[in-house]
Amino acid sequence: MTAIYGHEAAPNHPAPQQHRVGLPALWFGLFGAPAAWAAQLISNYALMSHFCYPRDTPLASPTFGGVRPLAIVIAAVLLLVAVAALFVALHSWNATRYRRDSEHHEVAEIGEGRTRFMAMAGILVSGIFVYGVLMAGIPLIAMPVCQF
């Protein structure tokens, strides 16, 4: 702790539980799922575009027959990464559940420390992007590979 917090009437450290959860876990919980979603979007778009519209002519069927299984495997792996990020965020949140910064109970409303904030943020972000990965997976199953 730096001297500044030794000031008279100075506040407590903003991250009193930083020792309970490491930063890598917090960052993975926060950005693991968005990274998985971005990778899925790019790979899906690249695969479908490349094998269905290789040059100037749109095709009725892809030039590589295994494109759908390949895309589904990639989506499944990335879904696992996103779900893992969600669980890591949940774990971080549980690991910091004893801390309350005030009499208020609303974790989302009044601050409860930076560590718990990042953990909760990870839950929210991972939840949204797990859903995003699932949504982007629907066309892989429900639509023809090449449709114009």
Partner: peptide
Amino acid sequence: STGILGFGVWVHHMFATGINATASSFFSAA
């Protein structure tokens, strides 16, 4: 999250350009 998702939706401005509907559906989902 909105800022990040905002990078995955640009093709919805191009649905009428004749690109693969399956490919564009990923952007519809986003």
